[in-house]
């Protein structure tokens, strides 16, 4: 899970240019609800996760519940990879 968080952190800060440093972006930092990530960036994040981890978001899964922090993202990806979601 740490690897997932690390890669997503790299993507958010390095690729999406989120206005926050890697160090400041904690595992529980709110992303969507704090507006750190806007709606367009959220879609780019979904695209990245699908390509990177070979998973597929269903329409209802593209939501704050699964994308609002590194903790939630990593848990969702792990669930998907384990076939639980």
């Amino acid at each position: 899970m740490d690897t997932i968080k690390g890669k997503v952190r790299d993507f958010l800060v390095g690729e999406l240019n989120l206005p926050i440093s890697q160090e400041e972006l904690k595992d529980d930092t709110p992303l969507l609800s704090s507006r750190l990530i806007d709606s367009i960036s959220a879609l780019l994040l979904v695209e990245f996760l699908e390509k990177q981890y070979g998973i597929e978001f269903k329409p209802h899964e593209v939501s704050h519940d699964n994308l609002d922090s590194l903790d939630l993202i990593a848990a969702f990806v792990e669930d998907k990879q384990g076939g639980h979601a």
Partner: peptide, 11 residues
């Protein structure tokens, strides 16, 4: 809109 309530994110 296939899910109007969801709008931009998946709708």
């Amino acid at each position: 809109a296939t899910d109007p309530a969801r709008g931009f994110l998946g709708g």
